[in-house]
Design a protein around this nucleic acid. Structure first.
Lengths: 161, 161
DNA sequence: TATTGTTATACTCTATAACTATA
DNA sequence: TATAGTTATAGAGTATAACAATA
C-alpha cells in the first residue's frame, strides 16, 4: 500500500487493464468501421439487441452501453436512419421507447461479426492460454455485475429548470 | 467454439472486459474532470511522464497512449498551453520532439491522484479479493506486452502525397 | 526517400440544459 | 412532481491529408 491508497500491484493492474482496453478498442474500431461503417458504440447497441432477444428501453440501453441519454439518442438516431434498429412507444408506459433490432440490423451484425471476432482473437486470445479465459471472466465478471447493480448514470437527479 | 471462431466463453470474457473498461473510464473521467480539468488521455500523458522519469518522443508517447499523431499533437498542445508539459527538440535527432512533465504538471498529478485512486478502488478493487489482483495482472500483462511489441499505429506507412 | 511532427480542414461525438409528454 | 426521451447548442476531440524540416 503506497501513500495513495492503492497498492503498487493494484495500480499496475489498473494501468494494464486500461492499456489493454484502449488497444483493443482501437483495433476493433478500425475493423468495425471498415467492414460495417460502425463505431464501437453502434456495434455494442446492435450486439446487445441481437444477442439477447430482449427489448430495451432507451434509458436501459444507454445505461448498459454506458452513455448519456442525449448521446444515446443521437446514436439511436444514426442507427435508425440506416434502418438497423427501430423505435416504438411502449404500450405499458407511453413515456418509454422500446428499441428493437431490424432484419437489416441483424444482417449487418452477421456480416461484421466474423472479422470482428478475428480481431478480438488476434489481440486478446491468441496468446492467452485457454485456462486464462475462465480466470479473466472469474475476476472481472463480479466487478461488472456489481457495477451494473450500482445506481446508473441516468438515475442521477437532473437539475430543475 | 461457435461458428464465429471464438468460444462462447471467450466472447463473454471479451464483452465483460469491454464493459468493465467502459464503466471504469466513465467513472474515472468524471473525477479527473472535476478535480483537475483533465481528460483521461491527458491524465494518461501526465501519469506516464510523471511515473517513469524517462523522456519520450511525441511518436512514442502517442503509441503508448494509443493515439494518432495528429490527435496527440492536439492534446500535447492543450497540456503545453497550461504549462503542464514541455516540448523541446531532441539533440540527437532534430526531427524528434522530446516531451517532459513540468513542476506544475507534477503538482497537478499529485493533486488529482488521491481522488483518482479512490475512484479506481471503488470501481475495481473494493469487491475484488486481494489475490485476484495478481491474477488479473498475470492474465493481461502478457497481452499488453505482446501488443506493445506489435508494430504500432504510427508505423503504418503514410500515403504518398 | 523515409521519418518526425504540426496544422488546416472537416467531421463525429458528447454533454448540458431546455423542452415535451406521460405517470 | 418525477420520469422518459428528444433536441438545440456549443464545444471537445479525432482523423486524413497536406505541409515543413531533418535523416
Amino acid at each position: 500500500m503506497n501513500r495513495s491508497g492503492l497498492s503498487e500491484q493494484q495500480l499496475q493492474a489498473y494501468f494494464t487493464l486500461t492499456e489493454v482496453g484502449n488497444l483493443l478498442e482501437q483495433a476493433v474500431s478500425s475493423q468495425l468501421r471498415a467492414d460495417g461503417d460502425l463505431s464501437p458504440v453502434q456495434f455494442a447497441v446492435l450486439a446487445t439487441l441481437g444477442t439477447s432477444d430482449a427489448t430495451y428501453r432507451m434509458t436501459d440501453l444507454a445505461d448498459r452501453i454506458v452513455y448519456s441519454r442525449s448521446g444515446f439518442s443521437y446514436q439511436a438516431g444514426q442507427l435508425e436512419k440506416r434502418g438497423l434498429i427501430a423505435r416504438e412507444p411502449s404500450p405499458q408506459d407511453e413515456r418509454s421507447t422500446l428499441v428493437t433490432i431490424t432484419a437489416a440490423g441483424r444482417e449487418l451484425l452477421a456480416r461484421v461479426m466474423p472479422g470482428h471476432v478475428d480481431v478480438v482473437r488476434g489481440v486478446l486470445f491468441e496468446a492467452m492460454p485457454d485456462g486464462d479465459v475462465a480466470v479473466l471472466q472469474g475476476v472481472l465478471g463480479p466487478v461488472r455485475d456489481r457495477l451494473r447493480a450500482a445506481p446508473p448514470r441516468s438515475a442521477r437527479p437532473r437539475r430543475r429548470s
